[in-house]
Amino acid sequence: MSKAKIRIPTPLRSFTGGSDEVEIDGADVRAALRHLGEKHGGLLPRILDAEGGLRPFVNLYVSGKNIRALNGLDTEVKDGDVLSIVPAVAGGVF
């Protein structure tokens, strides 16, 4: 079990009571996300689809590396890692 942080992007902070960072435990990304979902209900469906896969308009990074280029949701999480959720953001003009 590793202790890590997940950075929450602005569009999803309504699920974390406004927090931009959440401490989580988990040996891999899947377990870390599960823990995030237990702490903050409603957040996981924005990141994972019904089958538990990563949604195509969201990317997840473990200490600067995209998990799609690593082992996906099985990517190992080490103590002190920072996970970032990076969803597609449309905004520009308004």
């Binding site: 569009p11 195509p56 308009f57």
Partner: peptide, 25 residues
């Protein structure tokens, strides 16, 4: 490559939440 498809309407951030600090752009 980064985002193969846009989010469906029900999962896009709601318009009511949109807003931006004037200096940021």
């Amino acid at each position: 490559c980064l985002y193969p498809e846009p989010p469906p309407p029900e999962l896009a951030p709601s318009c009511a939440e949109a807003g931006v600090l004037g200096v940021l752009p």
